[in-house]
């Protein structure tokens, strides 16, 4: 269960997120949508303790990220500005995370198999394609077998087979009663997999409703999205 409560985040004169509140329930896939610059990544960075909100708070199962006793076992995250050392192999990157998080090293091999990266695991990340880096990022998120997934544009760089694989992963994760919150630009992708949709625009919450309700309205998601996210500019 993720709760975002009245979060405000300013960068100088710019207010990137302006009083956003929503929650992502466990057992559901929550899609997080918005145009570029709407404040999606900033909201997720606040949730993950990477950025300090000017107001409000974001909690995961009732606790701020920084107060989680074992963050990697509780939350698996993929975030936009997370990089890899180009000279380190994929396997060694995961070994470092496992070591720092106190996770058993066998989980490194397990996630490498799971994201279908074992052949590339002992090559330097500098030689990875964008899709392989994205798989490694997902492997890092899954390393601690977390109950909550927070994924910023997880489909970026994945090939069609990867996108299908990711979709099944998110579904099965939620089916096990875990929480999934993911952001995306790709409306069709979100529509296919999400149980609940949160749309933000220019730092404000524009929609927060179940995918079923949205479908029953009969309007395609694209139309709803465009009407919500362009209205503010008129």
């Amino acid at each position: 269960m993720i709760e975002i409560e009245d979060v405000v985040k300013r960068y100088g004169e710019t207010t990137a997120v302006d009083g956003v509140s929503f929650s992502a329930a466990s057992g559901q896939v929550t899609g997080f949508l918005g145009p570029n610059g709407a404040g999606k990544t900033t909201t997720l960075r606040v949730l993950l303790g990477l950025a300090r909100p000017d107001r409000g708070r974001a909690v995961i199962d009732g606790a701020a990220y920084a107060d989680l006793p074992a963050p990697r076992r509780t939350v698996g995250a993929v975030i936009d500005d997370m990089g890899f050392h180009p000279a380190r192999t994929g396997r060694n990157h995961l070994r470092v995370v496992a070591r720092a998080a106190g996770l058993p090293s066998r989980q490194v091999d397990e996630v490498l198999d799971f994201v279908d990266l074992p052949d590339a695991a002992d090559r330097r990340v500098g030689g990875y394609s964008q899709g392989m880096q994205q798989r490694l990022a997902l492997a890092t998120a899954l390393l601690g077998d977390p109950a909550v997934l927070v994924l910023d544009e997880p489909a970026n760089g994945l090939d069609p087979a990867g996108v299908v694989w990711l979709r099944n992963l998110l579904r099965s994760w939620a089916a096990e009663g875990r929480t999934v919150l993911f952001s995306s630009h790709v409306l069709s992708e979100v529509e296919t997999v999400a149980d609940h949709l949160v749309i933000i625009n220019a730092g404000h919450l524009a929609a927060d409703e179940s995918a079923a309700d949205l479908r029953s309205s009969g309007r395609p998601l694209e139309e709803v999205f465009l009407s919500l996210t362009t209205a503010a500019h008129r």
Binding site: L48, A66, L68, D81, H85, P86, V97
Partner: peptide, 14 residues
């Protein structure tokens, strides 16, 4: 420089 700080702080937020 290598943009690994975010991952480090996700593992160890303190």
């Amino acid at each position: 420089r290598q943009r690994t700080a975010v991952g480090t702080f996700l593992t160890t937020p303190r």
